[in-house]
Amino acid sequence: MTTTDAIRVDDLKVRYGDFEAVKGVSFDVPAGGSFGLVGESGSGKSTILRALAGLDRSGWTGGIAFEGRTVARTRDRAFFRSVQMVFQDPYGSLHPRQTVDRILCEPLDVHGIADTEKRIARGLDEVGIPQAFRFRYPHQLSGGQRQRIAIARALILEPRILLLDEPTSALDVSVQAEILNLLVDLREERGLTFVTVTHNLAVVAHLCDRLGVMQAGVMVEQLSVEDLRLGRARHPHTRELRALTVGLEAP
């Protein structure tokens, strides 16, 4: 692999006390690529994402590099202009006492970006939220609208890499498709690099081109979505997950 990889993870290990949540995981995501981390709850996939985002306070070992630069446990402000994250639960990821306007303004304020008016207006447009919603509070929005706001917040600093932590699992099935399509469109428009954590193989098939299957803190297999679709998975756990998804979809 070359140094132009957007993300490079090398032998990442995360411990919580005596429990090793991630046991030496390595993978690369090329610039503009979309990588899926799949596994059951507790397999360590979200832990990897939080370590990537710099949210892990307990400490990890191994190497994480973004766009060729190795990062430490704590990140500088510039880091957050290139890497942003969307959280799983839109009911928990928006400050309950702040308006949409304030939520979108905060990243711009922190980075001292001046043209807030224009950026917020464009940010809302991009995620398909009417300008009239700009001064509403999160409790006045639906789950799908909230997740759109969360995506707008993540994109307002114009990052090149977006980390997605189960971006649709807290949403209604009909809304899930809308959000997934929005993410696909945004990725195409902006040439973003995605890392998506999910337990849903359908989401991976829609959003990613490669995936890594996690089981008990170990990445048991990496394969392309094409291989997954054609049933060319080698590891039994991948086949198991695939069988579950297929079984669910066939009535």
Binding site: L55, A78, F79, M85
Partner: peptide, 26 residues
């Protein structure tokens, strides 16, 4: 440890700013 505070940390805001503008008001 709420996600909305994690989201503010992801903007690169200083701890002082997070406490003053996001935690204290709640």
């Amino acid at each position: 440890d709420a996600d909305f505070i994690a989201a503010v940390r992801l903007t690169g805001a200083s701890p002082a700013r997070i406490v003053l503008r996001h935690v204290a008001p709640l």
